[in-house]
């Protein structure tokens, strides 16, 4: 009986877990292919929050690099300055686009050079305790010919 109860608890736990998972999704993600000599890279994606409350992305994890950090690019006149962020807020029923020249996940200290079309697993962690596992392909360029930053 106890076991059954435990199982039921676990299952309900799973159910709520999958429920919170389904409100968050990632689209159009890619990781920048860099020359093998370059130690750093960046990951980009559109983070979609279908939930009724805002969520804060606080960390991204992956085994391919020593450290992953959230960054954005701040424009100050003609200067572009990279700024580390402690969180990125995705509004309720809204999106945040991580893209070149803007929000990005910086991969610092790649353990080995990324290969084109390699699939890199990431775990996105949110302040609420939720997490989202995503796999993103390594590409030379995620933008079209006419794309702007």
């Amino acid at each position: 009986m106890k076991r059954l109860l435990l199982l039921a608890l676990l299952l309900s736990g799973c159910a709520s877990w999958t429920q919170t998972q389904s409100r968050l999704s990632v689209e159009d993600g890619w990781v920048r292919l860099m020359p093998p000599v370059a130690p750093n890279s960046a990951a980009y994606f559109t983070l979609n929050n279908q939930g009724k409350t805002a969520v804060d992305l606080i960390a991204v994890e992956s085994d391919v690099a020593g450290v992953l950090e959230l960054h954005t690019i701040v424009e100050e006149g003609e200067l572009r300055r990279m700024q580390q962020l402690q969180k990125v807020t995705v509004p309720a029923q809204g999106i945040v686009q991580f893209k070149p020249g803007s929000y990005h996940v910086m991969l610092i200290g790649l353990k080995k050079p990324l290969q084109e079309n390699q699939i890199v697993p990431f775990t996105l962690r949110f302040a609420s305790g939720e997490s989202l596992a995503v796999s993103l392909p390594v590409k030379q360029d995620g933008e079209g010919k006419h794309a702007h930053h």
Binding site: V67, E69, H71, E76, E78, L79, R80, R81, M82, I108
Partner: peptide, 21 residues
């Protein structure tokens, strides 16, 4: 060209704020 070294808490070490023309 403008480039300013930036010290930060980031694990990336010194980065530059810079123009990009």
């Amino acid at each position: 060209v403008v480039y300013l070294p930036q010290k930060s808490d980031s694990a990336a070490g010194t980065m530059f704020a810079h123009s990009d023309y």
